[in-house]
């Protein structure tokens, strides 16, 4: 069987397309690379959707945390504290239990016990809390003069937020937010490892790496393959976020741009 056949059979195995049985003997390097790569589909799916949806909740939470009213501030503070203060591992555990009991009462919730939705919800809440903390920190360090200038122009409320506060906040938060994105993609490897069960041997990259390590009894091939995939993913994340960063800072002089990037900001 040539490598092309293997790719045809297994490239989409992680989403249930292609050969139903995983390879069971005579493991080739090609099989390992293909299947682990196929698993990356899930890592990207979880990471991308959680990041995109988490961005909005994070902005709202950061606003709420900065609000004067304790009715808004306290819940946001607690939400951020609980999700930032506990290991993702334990969050997955409790979420799975909660989803199971919800499902027993209301059958509507049954998709929540499968990874594609349940784990996504947990990752979404988790990344929202971390990003909210980053955004909140950035909001506090918005130069006073910027806000005063907006007031002087007669801006207030929504226009002031949309045109002054929000873009400045993003600009300041971006390096740390890049780190958060990297960590989020790494965290997706935990989904099938400790959180949710894998159905029909459809899992993420770590699941397949684990499968091969288990079958070949040699951890020194599949895990480095996994590592290479993740390094590529991390590099793409850094690349894309770098482009956005340049766009956010395009009004600044060249030297100032460089300085902002080098500021050591919060990492997760």
């Amino acid at each position: 069987m040539s490598c092309w056949d293997t790719i045809a059979d297994y490239a989409l195995r992680s989403v249930g397309v292609g050969e139903r049985l995983l390879p069971r003997s005579d493991f080739t390097l090609c099989q390992q690379v293909t299947l682990i790569g196929s698993g990356m589909i899930w890592n990207i799916y979880f990471g991308l959707l959680a990041l995109l949806s988490g961005f909005f909740l994070a902005t709202a939470l950061a606003m709420a945390k900065a609000a004067h009213s304790p009715l808004l501030r306290k819940p946001a503070e607690w939400f951020i504290f609980v999700f930032r203060g506990s290991p993702l591992f334990i969050q997955f555990f409790f979420a799975y239990f909660l989803f199971l009991s919800l499902k027993n009462v209301y059958p509507v919730f049954s998709p929540l016990t499968s990874a594609w939705l349940g784990a996504l919800v947990v990752l979404f809440l988790n990344t929202s809390a971390y990003s909210a903390e980053i955004f909140h920190g950035a909001m506090l360090s918005i130069p006073k003069g910027d806000v005063e200038a907006a007031d002087a122009y007669g801006m207030s409320g929504w226009p002031r937020f949309r045109r002054i506060i929000w873009p400045t906040m993003l600009r300041l938060a971006w390096p740390a937010y890049t780190n958060e994105a990297i960590f989020l993609f790494h965290a997706t490897a935990l989904v099938f490892f400790s959180g949710f069960p894998a159905t029909q041997q459809m899992g993420d990259a770590l699941y397949y790496a684990n499968y091969f390590a288990d079958k070949t009894f040699n951890p020194f091939v599949p895990y480095p393959i996994l590592a290479v995939y993740f390094i590529l993913l991390t590099l793409s994340v850094i690349g894309i976020f770098g482009i956005v960063n340049r766009r956010l800072n395009r009004h600044l002089p060249q030297a100032a741009r460089a300085r902002i990037r080098l500021r050591p900001m919060l990492v997760r």
Partner: peptide, 26 residues
Amino acid sequence: GVIAAQTGTIQASHVASSGATLLEFA
């Protein structure tokens, strides 16, 4: 049906090839 088994056991391999939906736990 849906059959559960521990990851990496001979039972998991058996279910995977039996046609049932395999649900794996650590």
